[in-house]
Every structure is written in structure tokens, then in C-alpha cells.
């Protein structure tokens, strides 16, 4: 018996945004009387953290603390239209819409502050802690709470903004496939290290090294969540998952989490991840979508590592012990 170790590589790109465009998302933003900015959306946070990153976008543009932003979603009576959360479009589309709305609101905010401070709006800056101050004369400043109260009760102005992001729809030329399908491309290279049990065909993934280029990491901790969780899903797809294990027969389809196999906490690989940034011109602060792509590179990296380990070329997903062992047997000429 031997445990055969191997290393495999895969490099991929991934499109951000629904193919072919034509998928707008809107954002509305307004300040309460005390300077909390409510971002109204109908976008759905699947747990990838959309609400958090778009609040970061709004805070950055407004120049206010993150805590001053509230995200109100997802109610079709109160939130403006969003096409939905899929195709790694959420951060990109909704982020851009929020930035546009926040920029419009910021303009009003600075205009009212200029009135209050009796200066030109162009001379004002935000400091990220809640104050709007005159550049170079920081003692001359007003806090957003006072400013919002003044805007509402004294100036009769709403500090608000509207945003929408639309990538124009592209049609496909049916003869050639010419099209403009995406907004930008993120990139990844994964190196997987596996061990193959040559008597049972069981593959264990020991390590995954992930290098990602995602434009801008708006929230690095949440990027890590995506990379780790996606790599786990990729490993799961690669080695375990099938709704019809005897495809194309529909027999023995797993019906629960006991039968539908996915790696448990005892089966996970050590992961090492590095993030590179090459901001996209059209991304919110340069960000590209990372939600979906993180499951992709691990699959071929594992397939290639299996070959490196034992000479078996897996061509069918998932790479079950049975498939690997049948091929090992064939290599040895025992069947």
C-alpha cells in the first residue's frame, strides 16, 4: 500500500456580471434627520456579504464612518429595482449604483455644509469620522448630525441621491458568437497537493494554494471567506458531489446530507491564499466579482494533482474512489 503524493495546477479567469448586460440595479440613499444614511435596495445578500460591502462603498464615498450607513433591503415595495444576486454581479452592479447614489447625496451634503459654514462647497472635505471641514482650516467644521438636522429643519433640503448601474445589453452575432458578455475578468491560479491511496483510489486534498486577482479587495476578511469557502466547494465538486451517482441512470439519487456527499470538517485541506489587485476601470473602487469563481480552479488543480500522483487522468467528475481505482487497475493491467 502506498499513499502517492502529487501536485497540480490550474489557472482561470472569470467574468463579472451577467453575460450580455442589460441587467440594471438601482440604489436610493437618503439621510435621516440625524445623519444616518439609509441605502434602499431590493438586492439580496446570500451570505456573501453584499450588505456589508455596499455599506463600505457608501461610507467611503460619503466620507463618513461605516456605522453611519444602514442598508435597507430587500423589499420590492420600498427598494428600487435590482436584477438579482447571481453571476458575480452583486458587488459590481449594486456597488456601482450605491457609489453613484452616494456621490449625489455627498454633493447635497457638501452644499448644505457650505451654506452652514459659509464657504464654497469645493473647499470642503470629509474626514471619515463624521465631520465636514474646510480644507486647511480643520477647526472650521460641522458634524454630520448637526448638518443633517440643519438640512432638514433649517434649509428644507433632503440629503439624498439616486444611483443605477446598467451595462448596455449586447446581442450575440449568431454566426460568429461575437458579443460583449461581461464587465471585467478576475483571475486565479490554484495549486493543489493531493495524496492518492493506491489500494482504494481515495484522494485526499492536503493543501490548496490560491493566488487571486480580483481588482480590489473591498473587505479582505470577506474575500478570504469567499476564497476558502469556494475552494472547499470546488474540492467537494471534484471529489464528492453528484445528484445521480450512476448517471445517466437516475438510481440511488441522494436525498439528504447523509447520502449527498460533501467533505466534512475532518476532510478539509490546508489553504494558503494571496490576493492581488488590478483595479477594473468599471468596478466599484476597481472591484471585480469573486463570489462564484472560487470553486472553479480547485477542480482541475485536483484532477491534475491526481495525475501527478498516480498517473490516472480523471475525465469524469466527481473523481470518486471507484473511478480512480478502476483507472489505477487499468494502468497496472490488472483488469
Amino acid at each position: 500500500m502506498a499513499k502517492l503524493k502529487g501536485r497540480g495546477y490550474a489557472s482561470v479567469n472569470y467574468p463579472t456580471g451577467m453575460n450580455l448586460g442589460g441587467d440594471p440595479s438601482q440604489a436610493l440613499i437618503h439621510s435621516t434627520t440625524t445623519g444616518t444614511f439609509v441605502v434602499s435596495l431590493s438586492s439580496v445578500d446570500l451570505g456573501q456579504g453584499l450588505k456589508t460591502v455596499v455599506a463600505q462603498c457608501a461610507a467611503e464615498v460619503l466620507g463618513l464612518p461605516f456605522e453611519n450607513i444602514l442598508i435597507d433591503t430587500a423589499d420590492t415595495d420600498t427598494g428600487p429595482h435590482c436584477m438579482g444576486t447571481f453571476a458575480s454581479r452583486g458587488t459590481h452592479r449594486v456597488g456601482n449604483a450605491v457609489i453613484m447614489a452616494a456621490a449625489e447625496a455627498r454633493e447635497v451634503m457638501l452644499a448644505v455644509a457650505a451654506d452652514e459654514l459659509e464657504v464654497d462647497p469645493g473647499d470642503l472635505e470629509t474626514d471619515g469620522t463624521g465631520f465636514i471641514a474646510v480644507k486647511g482650516a480643520e477647526e472650521k467644521r460641522i458634524h454630520i448630525t448637526d448638518l443633517a438636522l440643519a438640512a432638514h429643519f433649517k434649509h428644507g433640503r433632503t440629503i439624498s441621491g439616486r444611483g443605477i448601474f446598467l451595462k448596455e445589453q449586447s446581442t450575440v452575432v449568431p454566426e460568429t458568437g461575437e458579443m460583449d458578455p461581461d464587465s471585467c475578468q478576475a483571475h486565479a491560479c490554484t495549486v493543489a497537493v493531493v495524496e492518492v491511496d493506491d489500494e482504494t483510489g481515495v484522494v485526499e486534498v492536503l493543501e490548496m494554494h490560491n493566488a487571486y486577482e480580483i481588482g480590489r479587495a473591498l473587505n479582505p476578511a470577506m474575500v478570504t471567506q469567499q476564497v476558502e469557502g469556494g475552494a472547499w466547494m470546488g474540492m467537494s465538486h471534484a471529489l464528492f458531489e453528484a445528484t445521480e451517482p450512476y448517471y445517466p441512470a437516475r438510481d440511488h439519487g441522494p436525498a439528504d446530507f447523509t447520502e449527498y456527499l460533501m467533505p466534512g470538517p475532518a476532510d478539509i485541506a490546508r489553504q494558503y491564499s494571496v490576493i492581488l489587485e488590478r483595479p477594473a476601470d468599471n468596478g466599484p473602487f476597481g472591484a471585480k466579482g469573486i463570489g462564484e469563481m472560487t470553486a472553479n480552479a480547485p477542480i482541475p488543480a485536483i484532477a491534475n494533482a491526481i495525475f501527478d500522483a498516480c498517473g490516472v487522468r480523471v475525465e469524469t467528475m466527481p473523481f470518486t474512489p471507484e473511478r480512480v481505482l478502476r483507472d489505477l487497475d487499468a494502468l497496472k493491467g490488472t483488469t
Binding site: 476558502e228 469556494g230 472547499w232 466547494m233 460533501m262 466534512g264 470538517p265 475532518a266 478539509i268
Partner: peptide, 22 residues
């Protein structure tokens, strides 16, 4: 670490890949 892993081995998480939970 292994005792934590065994304790949660009946709890499915589809998002995180478990490392952060452990």
C-alpha cells in the same frame, strides 16, 4: 482541533469550508 472537528461533524455548512468555524 480534532475534538472540535468531531464535535461539529454532524453540522453542515455549505458556505465557509469549516476552517473559520473550527
Amino acid at each position: 482541533h480534532d475534538e472540535v472537528v468531531e464535535a461539529i461533524s454532524g453540522n453542515v455548512c455549505r458556505c465557509t469550508g469549516y476552517r473559520a468555524i473550527v
